[in-house]
C-alpha cells in the first residue's frame, strides 16, 4: 500500500492483483455529513409529532419519548444506515461515498459502531474541527474515528459512457484503415490518457478558442509518438480531428453489444 499522502489507496492482493480506491476528502465528507444532519433533523421532527400525540395520555411520557427518540436517532442513525446499506448513510449515498475496511476486508458491525461513537471526539469543539483536521493530516483522509476503527471513506463514482455518436459527429476515421495500429494504440495507452482524450472532447465547447487549439495541439503531440500512423492518414487533419480519431479508435464499439453498458455490467456495479 502507498505510504505517502494521496487521494488514492492502492491495495495489492496476495495474488498480485492491484486495485485502487479513491479516498474521500474532508470537504465532500462534510457535505455528506450536512445531508445526514438534515435527515436526522427531519426524522426527529416526524418523531416529535408522533410522540407529541402521547401527550394526550401523559405529558411526562411524551417528553420522555422525545428525549429517548432524539438520543437514539442522533447516535443510531449512522450506525444503522451504515450497517444496512453496507457502509453508506443517506448523505454518503447521495455523494457516492462508502465506508470501507482499511485493508479492503469486510466491514464489521463493531467497526461501524466504533467509528460512529468516536464522532464525540471528532466533533469537538464544533463542526467537526478535530475530525476535519485529522482528515486533512491523515495520509488516508481518516478522521480519528476512522483511524480507531480501521476504516476509510472511499469515492465510488458512477462512470457514464458519453454519447460517442454525437461526440464524434459521425465523421470518417482514417485510422480504421489500419486495425493493427489501432490495436497497438489501445494496448499502449494508459486508461488515464484515454480518459484525458475523451474528457477533452466532451468539454471542448466549454473552452475559449485559443485554449481549445492549444489543448488539442498538446494532446495530439502526446499521442503521435506512442503509435505512429502513416503520413497519408495524419497529414492534413487538424489536431482536434487527430484526437477525435484516437478516441474513436479507443472507445467505439466494434459491433452491437460490445459496450459495457450493453452487457449490463454497469447496472450490476
Amino acid at each position: 500500500m502507498h505510504h505517502a499522502k494521496t487521494n488514492i489507496l492502492t491495495i495489492k492482493t496476495p495474488e498480485g492483483i492491484v486495485f485502487s480506491l479513491g479516498l474521500a476528502g474532508p470537504v465532500v465528507r462534510f457535505m455528506a455529513w450536512s445531508v445526514d444532519m438534515a435527515s436526522i433533523a427531519v426524522i426527529i421532527c416526524v418523531l416529535n409529532f408522533f410522540f407529541g400525540l402521547l401527550g394526550i395520555i401523559s405529558r411526562d411520557l411524551a417528553v420522555a419519548a422525545n428525549l429517548l427518540g432524539y438520543f437514539v436517532i442522533s447516535i443510531g442513525y449512522g450506525i444503522f444506515t451504515e450497517w444496512y446499506w453496507q457502509g453508506q448513510t443517506l448523505g454518503k449515498r447521495l455523494l457516492r461515498l462508502r465506508v470501507m475496511d482499511e485493508q479492503g476486508l469486510r466491514l464489521q458491525i463493531s467497526q461501524i459502531i466504533v467509528r460512529n461513537l468516536l464522532r464525540f471526539v471528532d466533533g469537538l469543539p464544533a463542526f467537526y474541527c478535530v475530525g476535519g483536521l485529522a482528515c486533512l493530516i491523515s495520509r488516508r483522509a481518516q478522521r480519528l474515528g476512522d483511524f480507531a476503527a480501521n476504516t476509510i471513506v472511499v469515492r465510488s463514482p458512477r462512470i457514464d459512457v458519453p454519447d460517442l455518436d454525437q461526440l464524434l459527429e459521425g465523421k470518417y476515421n482514417s485510422f480504421g484503415d489500419y486495425p493493427h495500429l489501432e490495436a497497438r494504440l489501445r494496448q499502449r495507452l494508459t486508461p488515464r490518457a484515454a480518459q484525458m482524450a475523451l474528457q477533452a472532447l466532451v468539454r471542448r465547447d466549454e473552452l475559449i478558442p485559443q485554449a481549445r487549439v492549444e489543448l488539442f495541439r498538446d494532446l495530439a503531440s502526446y499521442f503521435k509518438p506512442i503509435v505512429e500512423f502513416p503520413p497519408e492518414v495524419t497529414d492534413g487533419i487538424s489536431d482536434e480531428q487527430y484526437v477525435r480519431n484516437v478516441v474513436d479508435a479507443l472507445f467505439r464499439p466494434a459491433a452491437p453489444g460490445r459496450s459495457v453498458r450493453a452487457s449490463g455490467l454497469e447496472d450490476s456495479r
Binding site: V18, L21, D101, R186, P191
Partner: peptide
C-alpha cells in the same frame, strides 16, 4: 489493466475483485 478503453469494465472488475478479496 493493459487495455485503455474499457474503464467501466475495469471499475466493475476492481469492485468485484475487491469484494471477493474481502470475503
Amino acid at each position: 489493466m493493459t487495455f485503455s478503453a474499457e474503464p467501466n469494465t475495469r471499475f466493475y472488475l476492481e469492485a468485484l475483485v475487491g469484494r471477493t478479496y474481502g470475503e
